[in-house]
Nucleic acid binder design. Structure first.
Lengths: 207, 207
DNA sequence: GACAATTAACTGACCGGTTAGTTAGTATCT
DNA sequence: AGATACTAACTAACCGGTCAGTTAATTGTC
């Protein structure tokens, strides 16, 4: 027996991350209000008292969950911009697939669903998310569209509209997976759907 | 005093609908768990005790909210099928715009967001919703796609994929409006966006 | 290397505010 | 007057947040 007795070892460094991971999972599953801190703590292998050593309140924990899970996303997005080679179409596909492998296929994808469900209860967090993620992505897509139009690949389109149209399928896929899809077995094959919907959109964008 | 007595008139017939409307609004805004029944009741102009005359529990009220708001939707969808005239493209556009004016532009649109946020807490309701709304819509779109393919208008496409691709923008628009969009002023012009995204998709579908 | 003395991560019982659900009583209708 | 739509005061349970106490690690002393 290596460590049943050591169930509660002292691991100050690891706790916050573990608590945040547990909180993300449960917040996404049940929503913020319906999630008990006792459950978050025990999912992270500690008790509620310990949770309060690291976070001031349930709300603070929520903010930490959002922040921790979008910070890497922001960082990664930035260097993805610079290296543009190939056609605008290829760049756009790369952008979308990068975003997918970063958001869609990781636990972090739940943050999107969480923001959608809790935006009205935490408007300031929603504004922060909008600026840190959505607006940034919008600017990225806008650049690619400009490039595509300049190269004669794309039609002149409303950038705002195009952005939403391009990301809608991927966002829908994520939200679906964490909500109704989780209850009704029939899940869409993500890779297949991403390919399909991107082709559809690209055809629409082409001159 | 003009009508403090009016405040509690006896209106057995009107109460359930009023309570359901108030509940929908608050459930969509704050989520199921974070909504107080006292608030639902007072939004409907009664007190909590009255609410319990018409609904057994908070959960029963939730189910009623979903059911009442998708029943008309189902009914309307059915007769929209039969009258197919014109091209498949026109039919598809009609289907989507009908759905939009029925779901997107009414209070009932909130049901979609509500189902997304609460699906995991009410899996059986989610399954019901999926069968009563999603699967039904899927079959409708499938018929139109078959028609379009038979007429040589559309490419041979995976119906499941195409369905999700077609409805993604509209669903995203609704979910957006009731969540992050509600916190960050910048709302998309629905009519414009629906036109834009449908054109994009249609281009992709065409032979 | 053993054995305090000290520090700090962690626990779990507890408190108080909140809210789903109940019920005794009031107002309105026929 | 009898029936019933409705109210408001009430209860019980639940859960966010606290804190006195426990236990694991570290340091210091011989």
């Amino acid at each position: 027996m290596e460590s049943p007795s050591r169930a509660h070892r002292r691991r100050k460094e690891a706790r916050p991350a573990e608590l945040i991971a547990a909180a993300l999972k449960l917040f996404v599953e049940h929503g913020f209000a319906a999630t008990r801190l006792d459950d978050v703590a025990s999912a992270a292998g500690v008790t509620k008292g310990t949770l309060y050593l690291y976070f001031d309140s349930k709300e603070t924990l929520f903010r930490a969950v959002i922040e921790q899970n979008i910070l890497p996303l922001i960082a990664r997005a930035e260097d993805s911009v610079a290296h543009h080679d190939g056609t605008a179409a290829e760049l756009l596909r790369g952008l979308l697939l990068d975003w997918w492998s970063l958001v869609g296929e990781t636990e972090a994808g739940g943050v999107l669903k969480l923001m959608v469900t809790e935006a009205r209860n935490f408007p300031d967090v929603a504004v922060y998310y909008n600026e840190a993620v959505v607006e940034r992505a919008k600017r990225l897509v806008s650049q690619v569209l400009d490039l595509g139009i300049a190269r004669g690949e794309f039609r002149r389109v409303d950038h705002e509209m195009a952005f939403h149209a391009i990301f809608s399928p991927a966002m829908m896929l994520i939200i679906w997976r964490y909500s109704i899809g989780a209850c009704c077995g029939q899940n869409i094959d993500p890779a297949h759907f991403m390919d399909f919907s991107f082709d559809l959109t690209l055809n629409g964008l082409k001159t």
